[in-house]
Design a protein around this nucleic acid. Structure first.
Lengths: 223, 223
DNA sequence: TAAGGTTTGCGACTATAGGGCGAAAACCCC
DNA sequence: GGGGTTTTCGCCCTATAGTCGCAAACCTTA
């Protein structure tokens, strides 16, 4: 996430198959390694990205023809890097806006799109935003992050109200030092926790409320 | 799903490791096979279940110690069988209520619980119900199915209103022939489609409504 | 120091989806 | 026809969130 756009880190493939096209970074699992450990290792070793704030398994893809003349399964992960960190990446890799992908190798385009959908959904009902935003931020900054990820405008008023009511954000008490182009400085917020939390409220068809203790709190001796 | 309870089909293991305990049905992937094809094959061949109305990949588990003295990955799937079908299963397999699981082999307990959570979540914002319910049903029957899967009481009134408004259910026009213990016969409904559909309304932070054509539809020349 | 421009904060209003409840309707059995 | 049971339906209430507009706070420039 940079330059106001949601971006993916891609490798430029030098060898067949798909020499010349772009692909998601990845590699083979080593013995005794967890999938997640492997992902983190590949990211660190191969593209020197260590600041992955969130990592989630997407899907294991098994179509027999996904790799030409080979039978190969791949497990895709979604990894998020905050908008304020800018890891130096090797020459053969580059960030690409998700909205304007070059031709991708294998089934990687489907994977990227699936990842974007997953991210968009989770932004709605979890606090994953913590993985995209800087440690502290104004609501406007956060709005830009959400807008980039969601792909449409977001109302700062609404964003603030929703995330505050859910207890996802908390004010730091500070105010941003200097506005970018003048204007009232914004209050700073942070995500209350940097671990994934799900907003329960989306469980429709909720369990009935039974013990409503004190159904009618003493209302002043009406009888 | 039978007897008003959410149930899982389990194998009784005859050999080590975990001889004597129960396990999820499964097996090895064959060359050139898709994971989903493999699952369907295993279910058909080994436990003779062919009526899987819904199949969804859960997660690929890779902990190195999940299988003793071996390194083995497994991809778990969630499969749903409608409450009215009762496949005959071999002697070494049986349905178990998810709420009262026997000790399970490997990491299968975690998988079952993950599957239940996934199901519960998807019942809220998709039409997966079609995979659990009979082709036609009264709201009460559907309520029982939902209650079993969700693990808590469900209001028939509410269920009907919600699913009708979402356009998930449609009335067949018929009425159930004979009530079980007398009482008013219920109207019959069916799921409008038996393919997965997601209720969009849960995307909070929706895109702003721009072109509100006809903001104030001709209200009778009030100046 | 005052005016103008810009951004942020916040409250008021509205819309809508869902939950709870109770009365009426439709059936069975006696 | 009366009593019991289940279903249906309407009404009311709440919670969540989308929209709007004005006031507040800051900067720059005259």
């Amino acid at each position: 996430m940079r330059a106001g756009l949601l971006q993916v880190l891609l490798w430029h493939r030098a060898h067949e198959p798909f020499a010349g096209s772009w692909a998601l970074p990845g590699g083979y699992l080593e013995r005794g390694e967890t999938l997640e450990e492997s992902i983190r290792r590949q990211l660190a070793e191969k593209v020197d990205v260590r600041e992955v704030a969130y990592l989630e398994q997407l899907e294991t893809r098994s179509a027999p023809d996904r790799v030409p003349r080979e039978w190969q399964l791949a497990t895709a992960y979604l990894g998020l890097v905050a908008s304020d960190v800018d890891p130096r990446v090797p020459d053969d890799t580059a960030w690409h806006p998700v909205d304007a992908l070059p031709p991708l190798a294998f089934d990687h385009e489907a994977i990227v799109l699936a990842g974007r959908e997953r991210l968009r959904a989770k932004l709605s009902y979890t606090n994953v935003g913590y993985a995209l935003a800087p440690p502290e931020f104004t609501i406007s900054q956060l709005r830009d992050v959400y807008a980039a990820a969601l792909g449409h405008d977001v109302s700062a008023t609404n964003l603030q109200r929703v995330l505050l009511r859910r207890g996802v954000l908390e004010p730091t008490g500070d105010v941003r030092a200097s506005g970018p182009t003048g204007g009232r400085p914004g209050a700073l917020f942070r995500f209350r926790t940097h671990a994934l939390e799900v907003t329960d409220q989306f469980a429709v068809l909720r369990p009935p409320v039974l013990l409503r203790s004190e159904p009618f709190p003493a209302r002043g001796g009406r009888l």
